[in-house]
Computed example of a mutant assay.
Amino acid sequence: MSEPQPLAAHESLEIHEMLNFKTLCLAKSKLMQGLVFDRDLKALMEKDVRQSLQAIEALKAVYARAPFQTAVPENRPTPILNGR
């Protein structure tokens, strides 16, 4: 198998925008879990968090081929539980 080609500049920007969007979605789902009391909705949000984390890891692997990069934060927001 050959080495993957580096991304073009416009592809790098698109991947960066997708990473930003998925990170924002992840943060929102994690933060909103503390405000949700419906079990089904909370389970759906937890599923969204797991899928978002997987998507972010996949996007980061593609983003590594960008000719220029900015750091992808490793810190992830934690849900607010019981007012903490």
Rank of each mutant, 00 (worst) to 15 (best):
A61Q: 15
E46P: 00
S52W: 06
T70A: 15
E46A: 03
Q51A: 00
K60Y: 02
Q51H: 09
R65K: 14
V62T: 14
T70G: 09
E57D: 15
R50S: 12
F68T: 09
Q54S: 06
F68S: 10
A64C: 09
P67L: 14
L59T: 02
R50A: 12
L59N: 01
N75L: 10
A58P: 01
A64N: 10
T70D: 09
Q51L: 04
Q54E: 14
V49R: 07
F68M: 11
S52K: 05
I56V: 03
D48S: 11
P67V: 14
E57V: 02
E46L: 05
R50V: 08
Q54N: 07
P67A: 11
Y63N: 01
Q54W: 06
K60R: 13
V72F: 04
L53F: 02
R50L: 13
P73Y: 07
P73A: 11
P67M: 13
Q69I: 13
V49A: 04
R65C: 11
E46H: 08
A66D: 06
V62I: 15
N75A: 09
A66P: 01
N75Y: 07
E46K: 05
V62M: 13
V72A: 04
A71L: 14
Q54Y: 05
A71G: 02
L53V: 01
Y63D: 01
Q51W: 06
L59R: 02
S52P: 01
N75K: 12
V49G: 03
A64H: 06
E57G: 03
E46G: 02
V49Y: 07
L59K: 00
L53N: 03
A61V: 10
N75D: 10
S52M: 10
A55K: 04
E57I: 02
V62Q: 12
Q51C: 01
L53H: 03
S52L: 13
E46F: 03
P73Q: 11
K47F: 13
P67D: 10
S52Q: 11
N75M: 08
A58T: 08
V72P: 00
V49E: 13
E46Y: 04
R50Y: 10
E74R: 08
I56R: 01
Y63P: 00
A58E: 15
E74S: 07
A64R: 10
A55W: 06
L53S: 01
P73I: 09
K60D: 12
A58H: 11
R65M: 14
R50G: 05
A66V: 13
D48W: 08
T70C: 14
A55D: 10
Q51Y: 06
S52V: 00
E46W: 03
R65L: 15
K60F: 03
E74T: 04
E57C: 02
A66S: 14
T70L: 15
F68R: 07
E46M: 06
R65N: 13
A71H: 04
V49F: 08
S52A: 13
L53Q: 10
L53G: 00
E57N: 07
A58G: 08
L59D: 04
A66E: 07
Y63W: 04
R65P: 04
A71I: 13
R50D: 15
V62C: 11
R50M: 12
A71R: 09
R65H: 12
A55C: 05
Q51M: 04
E74H: 03
A58R: 09
Y63F: 07
Y63I: 05
I56G: 00
